[in-house]
């Protein structure tokens, strides 16, 4: 899933200053699961905005809504009516949702209420870790199912660097060295010989460095 964290309230307040009618818009997908962009957070954030406006003597109308997915035209079309007389939308979806809103409703100012952080998931209650860098050329089949591109601080492909100690990454003692984990996993699977092979430089043409990337499913594309 896409993991996103809440922007500081001060920053949100600053973005929205001067707008009279604001819609706080949640998204029912990834960000609901990570407790930052769901219906519950819409209610909380809207209340916070109303309260701060009241305390500061500002007249602001804050309305609330959510859609199942802000990253699909069909779903955001449903809220056209709700937001039509708003002068700003605070989207608490990921950056994709924010852009879909901005593109579909060009006359309304759309602001991000979240910082989209990474693709990952919760490993335990309240703790999220990055798991995929979207490099476009998956190598998990050779690394015991653990991704060194997203989980190694240097995205190394040939094993742990010289800073791996006691299973921890040199960059942070809180981060497991993924290459140590890969080593243990391959050891368990009796595949350690894999680690002896030199992996050549990665072809990054499918990776983030070559954005914007595009995928076409020929069989679904409607002929014009």
């Amino acid at each position: 899933m896409i993991v996103a964290s809440s922007k500081p309230f001060q920053e949100i307040k600053q973005m929205l200053s001067g707008f009279k009618k604001v819609c706080v818009l949640g998204c029912g997908s990834c960000v609901t699961i990570c407790h930052t962009g769901g219906e519950k957070q819409v209610i909380e954030l809207a209340a916070q905005l109303r309260l701060s406006a009241k305390l500061e003597g500002r007249e602001v109308e804050v309305i609330e809504d959510s859609t199942l997915r802000q990253c699909e035209w069909e779903f955001i079309e449903d809220i056209r009516e709700v937001i039509q007389d708003c002068d700003a939308v605070l989207s608490i979806a990921c950056g994709i949702g924010v852009q879909y809103m901005a593109e579909r409703f060009p006359k309304i100012r759309v602001f991000p209420g979240l910082n989209t952080t990474f693709m990952g998931g919760p490993t335990e209650q309240g703790i999220f870790w990055e798991r995929c860098a979207g490099c476009g050329n998956c190598i998990l089949g050779t690394t015991g199912g653990l991704c060194p591109v997203s989980r190694c601080a240097k995205s190394l492909l040939n094993g742990p660097c010289g800073g791996s100690q006691n299973g921890k990454c040199e960059v942070s003692q809180e981060t497991p060295c993924v290459w140590h984990q890969i080593y243990d996993q391959l050891d368990t699977q009796r595949l350690l010989a894999t680690m002896e092979t030199i992996v050549p430089p990665k072809d990054w043409t499918t990776g983030m460095e070559n954005h914007p990337r595009k995928m076409i499913l020929e069989h679904l594309v409607m002929k014009k």
């Binding site: 040939n158 094993g159 742990p160 010289g162 800073g163 100690q165 006691n166 680690m195 002896e196 030199i198």
Partner: peptide, 23 residues
């Protein structure tokens, strides 16, 4: 090339050296 005999996993450290030599 450099190699760190004090890093982990310890057993991999000689293998990593071998990789560097092969490279």
């Amino acid at each position: 090339a450099a190699e760190n005999p004090f890093a982990d996993p310890f057993k991999f450290r000689a293998i990593r050296l071998a990789k560097k030599i092969a490279a």
